[in-house]
Design a protein around this nucleic acid. Structure first.
Length: 646
RNA sequence: GCCGAAGUAGCUCAGAGGUAGAGUACUUCCUUGGUAAGGAAGGGGUCACGGGUUCAAUUCCCGUCUUCGGCUCCA
């Protein structure tokens, strides 16, 4: 007999060789139906795996990531089976479960090109095969046998993968007519896979390497119940409505023109107002925290970037330098602001007493991004960073870092980003040659970041090997409407540039010392930030930020004069206000302005004119009753102040 | 850049080898209204661009550009 310990601490005894599924079924038949994977002593495994020793068990229902992972991984195998049966001779790459669903990379047999037109067919075939309720069986085989098996089939992508595996770790999973190299775990059978949707087809390089062959990636998602699939599809539909490209068009925030160039955003008046409010807000916040604003040109001599080292690393994959007509001097569109800021630092002598020096700029930079990578405002070729550089003494690093984390937390809160993640990127400990700077500095910086994040109560994931070549960093990530994660803010420690630019300060010992530089951006880029802001609030901006805060809606033309007087009043209070004096009925005007996400509508008719009041309607909330006109203006001013409270 | 798909009115989209369509927006007129769509008339198109096939191409074919879904990259 073996002892099985449950998460609540209770223990049951079973005969050796019992499976997790049998354990679940012993607890309740219903549980057995709802469980998709198990963890034994912390390792996820098949429900059908015999248990041969005392174990701690966790049974995973749909709500657990482990369950969904097994479910989708099994669905990927099902997809592969469907593709193989439809397009014989197909070669298979990898087919993992992902955060929302699964994919399989395939090279279709023959001359077949799988395109979106094939989706219904593939989906239908998957459903048909799932209904066969085939069992997944696991088999351990030798490397030699695995190579022979997949070699015979001509599955050269699989044999390449097997080549890299160690003897004794190779397992196969089979179901129906399909066998795949796979670590597992899987569902006991395809039976629970009842609702299936093939979502999209895309190209994907084998092993993510652009020098290698491009395979066809088929994305799908599946659920145990049709209702869950319907909900997911509804979510995707809803997300489309929040897409910043769509909302940006609707609200007339920005546009692109191929006459200007791809990836070069044009801000329309309302979008420009949004930017202006954001930068104004940020500027006030920064000044309070001792930042000094600076301004630098959009181009810089190539030699500047040779000094910084960026030319060597990125020169050939950047916009190429422009030349002066007579002297032939070469200038680059600036791809980042830091070299300019280093020159500003150098312009004056700094005492250790002056540090930390915090230098900020809304600097527009230009980077060549591959055409296929451009995406709305989230990936563009010209963007404005809310960039700043902290020049500090090594002993100030941690406090500076903490102050920046605090600032990021405040900014994200003020803009109502509830859901962000933070990632600490450290050196790859196995290959320190990729990085510049002394071990001692690195250790110190990594420790400073980790401690600062901890002391600020920031929950972070730590990823080794993701650091920049010049120092470790802390990134803030926010999700877009459909759950893709984008980096916004970043805080990076840099020992490299101060060295390369020969920056120094005079220490208390009256000798020169090297400062440490922290690069940081909070919005990241105005463009990407606005994009994510839109996807998170669907275009319903906080009052302080809305390009148009108030629209006055006269009931009929007779009240236009009153509306004009109100407009003057609002302007006196710096409230961004418009009048909707179109010859339309009140219901129509309200509907249109609601759709434009105007925070406040002021309905004015005979009653209001007589009493000097306004009838207030709040976006999304409806009629809020009547107020004195000036009282309303004051109310708005206090509401804005409250929104920006620290 | 690569694989696949798409491009028709400002916007959302229908259409078909033979004179270009709807809704909405816009302009004008009627209506003067009370919290999410009042009515009428009118203007608006090199059907992305360039070639080819054809008596005839917006439609079929080829190329280019742009956009979309991914891959690669991201100082």
């Amino acid at each position: 007999m073996i002892k099985i310990t449950f998460p609540d601490g209770s223990i049951r005894e079973y005969a050796m060789g019992i499976t997790a599924l049998q354990v679940a079924s012993d607890i309740s038949p219903r549980l057995a139906k709802e469980v998709y994977a198990a963890s034994l002593n912390g390792i996820t495994s098949d429900l059908s795996m015999p248990i041969n020793e005392d174990s701690e068990i966790r049974l995973h229902k749909w709500e657990d990531e482990e369950a969904r992972h097994a479910f989708w991984h099994s669905s990927a195998h099902l997809l592969a089976e469907a593709v193989e049966s439809l397009y014989p001779g197909t070669k298979f790459g990898i087919g993992p479960a992902i955060e929302n669903g699964f994919y399989y990379d395939v090279e279709p047999g023959g001359e077949k090109v799988i395109s979106e037109d094939d989706i219904p067919l593939i989906e239908q075939q998957m459903k048909k095969l799932a209904a066969e309720k085939s069992h997944f069986t696991r088999r351990e085989i030798s490397k030699e046998e695995a190579l022979r098996l997949f070699g015979e089939k001509g599955d050269y992508y699989k044999t390449e993968l097997i080549d890299e595996l160690e003897e004794g770790t190779i397992t196969l999973y089979s179901h129906g007519n399909f066998t795949d190299l796979c670590r597992g775990p899987h569902l006991p059978s395809t039976e629970p896979i009842r609702a299936i949707k093939v979502l999209s087809i895309a190209g994907a390089y084998w092993r993510g390497d652009e020098k290698r062959k491009m395979l066809t990636r088929i994305y799908g998602i599946s659920f145990p119940k049709q209702k869950l699939l319907d909900e997911h599809l509804t979510f995707l539909e809803e997300a489309k409505k929040r897409d910043h490209r769509k909302v940006g068009k609707e609200l007339e925030l920005f546009t692109f023109s191929s006459n200007v160039g791809m990836g070069l955003p044009l801000w329309l008046p309302k979008g420009a107002e949004l930017q202006l409010q954001l930068t104004g807000f940020m500027t006030r916040v920064l000044k309070k925290r001792g930042y000094k604003m600076v301004a630098t040109p959009h181009i810089g001599n190539v030699s500047l970037y040779k000094t910084s080292g960026h030319y060597d690393k990125y020169g050939s994959s950047s916009f190429q330098p422009i030349k002066t007509p007579q002297e032939g001097e070469e200038f680059m569109l600036k791809p980042m602001n830091c070299p300019h800021h280093c020159e500003i630092y150098s312009a004056t002598v700094h005492s250790y007493r002056d540090l930390p020096l915090r230098m900020a700029e809304f600097g527009t930079v230009y980077r060549y991004e591959q055409s296929g990578e451009l995406h709305g405002l989230t990936r563009v070729r010209s963007f404005t960073q809310d960039d700043a550089h902290h020049f500090c003494r090594p002993d100030q690093l941690k406090e500076e870092f903490k102050s920046i984390i605090k600032l990021v937390q405040y900014i994200l809160k003020a803009l109502d980003f509830k859901d962000f993640t933070a990632q600490i990127s450290l050196r790859d400990p196995s290959d320190k040659t990729k990085y510049i700077g002394s071990d001692e500095n690195w250790d110190r910086a990594e420790e400073a970041i980790t401690e600062a994040a901890g002391e600020m109560g920031l929950s972070t994931t730590v990823v080794k090997g993701e650091a920049a070549f010049y120092g470790p960093k802390l990134d803030f990530m926010v999700r877009d409407a459909i759950g893709r994660s984008w980096q916004l803010g970043t805080i990076q420690v840099d020992y490299n540039l101060p060295e390369r630019f020969g920056l120094y300060y005079i220490g208390s010992d009256n000798t020169r010392h090297r400062p440490v530089m922290i690069h940081r951006a909070i919005f990241g880029s105005m463009e990407r930030f606005v994009a994510l802001l839109i996807e998170n609030n669907g275009g319903k901006f906080p009052l302080w930020l809305a390009p148009d805060q108030v629209v006055i809606v006269p009931i009929s033309e007779k009240f236009n004069d009153y509306a004009k007087n109100l407009l003057i009043l609002m302007n006196n209070y710096d409230i961004r206000t418009l009048i909707d004096d179109r010859n339309e009925k009140i219901g129509k005007k309200i509907r249109d302005n609601e759709l434009k996400r105007i925070p406040y509508l002021l309905i004015v008719g005979e009653k209001e004119v007589e009493t000097g009041t306004v009838s207030v309607r709040r976006q999304g909330e409806g009629d809020r009753g009547t107020m004195g006109a000036e009282d309303f203006a004051k109310y708005i001013v206090t509401e804005i102040a409250r929104e920006l409270e620290e």
